[in-house]
């Protein structure tokens, strides 16, 4: 199948996996899946699966990386070698470095780092199964893991992405839609204020399409946020 041959939607406006244009894939989240970690989360997002672990706050060493006024976040995003159809050679690559950095930038915007001067908080994100949209999966799981570790935050970052395929704006592209699509707009949203801490985009969107994708994302973020809160409630009980 060449580019342009892929039909993402039937005449009734239903996508290949049965969703409507503004519908997300099903999301499941579970906290505390890594017994030895200070905080952890497992997320299943469509066929994507990721785990996130938080260790710390702990002493930051070597000392030259310490900040006298705040903690540093040490964020790593990685894809397991068996997470994709073609095996990934282990080790960092440019893509995972960039995603690690933008994830750190997003999470540092909400974590109360000033509470822990000279220390380090490690955030580890591992993609176990990949099926388009892993960075959103990772950021969302990391937020839950940070909350699970009891790290004070002003809000949890919810990351979602809308995109475009066959000229139609679609929420949460799956693998073929992502492969044959024309645009992708991942965002990191703070659901309490609808502020953004993470934003990327590639492809081609008109201003109207862009606005629609943006609105889809804000709506979806609130849906995912409810699932994140449920997962934390399930582990700790009570109201959050």
């Amino acid at each position: 199948m060449g580019y342009g041959d892929y039909q993402c939607m039937d005449e009734n406006g239903i996508r290949e996996d049965g969703r409507k244009a503004d519908e997300m894939r099903p999301v499941e989240i579970e906290c505390g899946v890594i017994p030895v970690a200070d905080g952890s989360a497992y997320i299943k997002w469509g066929k994507n699966e990721a785990i996130a672990a938080v260790y710390g706050p702990m002493e930051a060493h070597p000392r030259k990386i310490q900040r006298q006024d705040r903690a540093i976040l040490d964020v790593r995003y990685n894809m397991a070698p068996f997470s994709t159809s073609d095996r990934i050679r282990p080790g960092f690559n440019r893509r995972s470095r960039e995603i690690s950095k933008v994830t750190r930038d997003a999470l540092e915007s909400v974590v109360d780092l000033e509470l822990y001067p000279r220390s380090k908080i490690r955030v580890e994100i591992e993609i176990i199964c990949a099926e388009a949209g892993t960075r959103c999966c990772g950021i969302t799981a990391a937020s839950v893991a940070l909350a699970d570790a009891g790290i004070p935050m002003s809000d949890m970052v919810v990351s979602v992405a809308a995109g475009k395929c066959n000229g139609i704006v679609l929420m949460d592209l799956n693998k073929p839609e992502d492969n044959y699509g024309e645009a992708d707009l991942p965002m990191g949203i703070l659901p309490m204020t609808d502020e953004l801490v993470f934003l990327q985009m590639d492809g081609d969107l008109s201003m109207e399409e862009f606005q629609l994708a943006w609105d889809y994302n804000i709506k979806a973020a609130h849906e995912v946020h409810a699932i994140m809160v449920e997962a934390l409630k399930k582990r700790y009980g009570g109201d959050i």
Binding site: I34, V36, A37, I51, A52, A53, Y55, M58, R76, N78, P81, P90, R122, E124, I125, E126
Partner: peptide, 11 residues
């Protein structure tokens, strides 16, 4: 066989 122990699994 490759065992890549990522820092996710322990402090």
């Amino acid at each position: 066989t490759s065992a890549e122990i990522r820092p996710v699994c322990g402090p």
